[in-house]
């Protein structure tokens, strides 16, 4: 039983981080029909910003702030201006291919210019363990969960309770009407990209201490975020959250009770089952988007 609790908690912890990336995924899709196949690399890179800043002598907190700022600037604003805006008029598919290329570029650049070896990443939370009902729960897991939930909750409140947030919703749900009502549609879409970059940076800083900072981290992360978004319904923040948590837990359960050799298959099996049984996703509505 104590084992089971441990597995569930660490699964939820990892899952909540996947959810951050998955939420960003759905936001970009809703606001600008961007399916970002570089999302995994978006989560891989900010950890290297942190390492880079620390390498220059910055303390941890400053390095994190720098990484957040750089991410928002590069993975948010520059990504939208330099890649999405020029590619989107050519259609969704060329844009998807461009994001795949961007992902490769980011991955290979880190390998080439930083290191091909996994870099140790300093833990941001205490590495202690607390005993709950006999289970050893790591403080870092609890903190990861708390930070991810706080980020998603803040986002939800922003979207629902502020006028800017509602303008963003209007832009995502009915762009033509938002424009007719005088909403600054372009600015709203830009906000979405900035938010996605910030979420990716938070995910990066939370998840990298679990593994090492490595150029190839994005491969699994991107796939998992994509699957989490689809499983959840692709057009809902709540869905992406549920999808992320579910994958984190299933991944951990299968690694422990089945075999760690097959753990990578678990999210894919979940994806296939969901697509067969409930193609609109767990929380999704089949309407989604009309063209």
């Amino acid at each position: 039983m104590s084992e089971f609790i441990q597995i569930i908690v660490s699964g939820l912890s990892a899952g909540s981080i996947y959810a951050l990336a998955a939420v960003g995924f759905t936001l970009l899709w809703q606001a600008s029909q961007t399916i970002n196949f570089a999302q995994g690399e978006f989560v891989m890179l900010p950890a290297f910003f942190v390492l880079g800043a620390m390498g220059l002598g910055a303390p941890m907190w400053l390095a994190i702030a720098v990484a957040l700022g750089l991410s928002v600037l590069l993975l948010g604003a520059a990504f939208k201006k330099l890649i999405v805006e020029p590619m989107l008029p050519h259609g969704t598919l060329p844009l998807i291919i461009a994001t795949i290329a961007l992902g490769l570029l980011m991955k290979e650049s880190v390998k080439e210019f930083y290191s091909a070896q996994g870099q140790p990443f300093p833990p941001i939370f205490p590495t202690e363990v607390v005993r709950v009902f006999g289970a050893a729960i790591s403080v870092a897991d609890i903190m990861n969960l708390a930070v991810s939930f706080a980020a998603i909750l803040t986002l939800q409140l922003f979207l629902q309770r502020t006028r800017t947030g509602r303008c963003m919703q209007a832009t995502a749900q009915n762009r033509g009407v938002a424009e007719i009502l005088g909403v600054n549609v372009k600015r709203m879409v830009m906000y979405t990209f900035l938010i996605n970059a910030a979420l990716a940076a938070i995910a990066s800083i939370l998840i990298t201490p679990i593994y090492l900072a490595k150029f190839s981290n994005g491969e699994t992360l991107g796939l998992v975020a994509f699957i989490a978004a689809i499983v959840g319904g692709f057009n809902q923040i709540r869905g992406a959250l549920v999808g992320g948590l579910l994958i984190g837990v299933i991944d951990n359960l299968s690694a422990f009770y089945v075999s760690s050799e097959y753990r990578a298959a678990a999210p894919l099996i979940l994806l296939i089952v969901i697509i067969m049984v409930r193609p609109q996703g767990i929380m999704g509505t089949s309407e989604g988007r009309t063209v």
Binding site: R166, Q169, A170, Q173, N174, G176, V177, A178, I180
Partner: peptide, 12 residues
């Protein structure tokens, strides 16, 4: 301008 068709923001 009130365009043709249904033009509400569905989830708001």
């Amino acid at each position: 301008y009130v365009p043709q068709g249904r033009n509400v923001i569905p989830q708001l």
